[in-house]
Amino acid sequence: MRRLWRAIRRSPSGLVGIVLVGVFIFTAIAAPLLAPMDPVAIDLANRLGAPTWTVEGPGAHPLGADQLGRDILSRIIWGSRITLVVAITAVVMSGALGVLLGLLAGFLGGWTERVIMRLADVQLSIPLMLFALLIIGALGPSLFNLIIVLALTGWTRFARIVRGETLSLREREFVMSVRAAGATGLRIMLRHILPNVMTAAIVVATLEVARVVILESALSFLGMGLQPPEASWGRMLAEGRDYIASAWWLATFPGVAILLVVLGVNLFGDWLRDYFDPKLQENR
């Protein structure tokens, strides 16, 4: 624990990342307590109401109100739940799947590798939106199906990077060395190669979180994600686009929220990568 604390203090950017991610997670969990208003309560009298602290103000809403007069701050706070659930589950699912398949492909080689990597190629050759339309068209739009779509489109990135890393690690002398010590293939794969590819996988995961947040926005915008009136940052951003000239707060604040989360996750990912790299650790 003390080591963790020291590692955090040594890296200012890591601290920023941890704080941003921490605030994000806290907001998502404590949304009902933090949100000043009901996120779906429509108040047409106050539609496009400006934030209280601007020259256009004063209105009743701290970050303004949207085209139906709903409180933007409350919607952002509630929307963080969606973003968190979607981003974390989709990335964890696609990461687990991709790392496992990449390991198998790289370590076993032969037909296992050919099947897995061709599957990845097929997956990559299908346009994302077409694939999303297909799945959601068949299963219907819901949070769960949205996550499935995002997970199924993300695993190829993990698989390709992990396979490449595994290919080079497999030939390293320490693998021969543990093999000569009587380790099974499974043990070599999980205990010796997996920890070595985690750094690369974590970097991919942070990029994936960013991608997933943005994709979720895009899909929600097309009506294939969350259904109104539920608040999703991507949806808010998309809807606010039409009013950008007259009511900038509609699109700006959800955009800033996305920006901060993506930035936080990236900084956190960098820190995590360094934290797990024994070469960058101080002597203990």
Binding site: E173, M176, S177, A180, N196, F276
Partner: peptide, 14 residues
């Protein structure tokens, strides 16, 4: 078994 290169015969992350 002992291998030639002690630099690469140990797993760097364990």
């Amino acid at each position: 078994f002992i291998f030639q290169d002690p630099m690469t015969s140990l797993n760097p992350v364990l």
